[in-house]
């Protein structure tokens, strides 16, 4: 029994030590310094290249989680680390979690060329969008379908936090090209 008590104490102490080591502000300087581009969460996400305007431009990280219904699809939030912003509005000068953007490679497919750009907060994907997709005619409709299903702060990418997406019906080639670029982007980001 003494050993069990020791083990439980060790568990508590170990967990605390790990959290403290990771959470120490000293380490955060190093972490943010090595990531680029570093964009403060409070800035206008529209300024980020390739990031589609979000419903709540004041804080995309938050809006990704808090949709009008009050919540995202649960697996999305739990699926990855989600450093939670402390306040809903960027009024405080306290350090906020940083956003970074990562682009996937250009993927050429039947109807054109696309690349996927994802925005991450920590390791969590908070936004995704396809760039350079054909806009006209039948291919444009496919592009729109895929964009509507996958992209955005409440799209399937953000919900699933992975490149394993359901293929959009009647837009298989576009879906696959999107997923390929997305997978590379995620690999690059992590």
């Amino acid at each position: 029994m003494r050993r069990a008590l020791l083990a439980i104490t060790g568990l508590a102490a170990g967990t605390t030590a790990l959290v403290v080591l990771k959470g120490s502000p000293g380490a955060s300087q190093v972490a943010t310094g090595e990531r680029s581009p570093v964009v403060p969460a409070g800035s206008d996400p529209a300024a980020l290249p390739g990031v589609a305007p979000t419903p709540d431009p004041s804080d995309p990280a938050l809006s990704a989680r808090a949709t009008p219904g009050g919540r995202q699809s649960p697996t999305g939030r739990a699926g990855a680390d989600a450093p939670r912003p402390a306040a809903p509005a960027p009024t405080t000068s306290a350090p906020r979690s940083t956003l970074r953007t990562v682009s996937g490679p250009q993927v050429t497919y039947e109807y054109g060329t696309l690349s996927v750009q994802i925005t991450l907060s920590g390791t969590r994907i908070v936004n995704a969008t396809g760039i350079g997709m054909p806009q006209s005619g039948q291919s444009g409709r496919r592009s729109d379908d895929v964009q509507a299903t996958y992209s955005g702060t409440s799209g399937e990418v953000v919900r699933k936090q992975s490149a394993d997406l359901d293929t959009v019906s009647d837009a298989t080639a576009t879906s696959e090209a999107y997923q390929r670029s997305l997978r590379a982007a995620i690999d690059r980001a992590r």
Binding site: K22, T32, G122, T123
Partner: peptide
């Protein structure tokens, strides 16, 4: 997986 200093609150 956890970036250092990512825990704010």
């Amino acid at each position: 997986d956890t970036p250092a200093g990512s825990m704010k609150d």
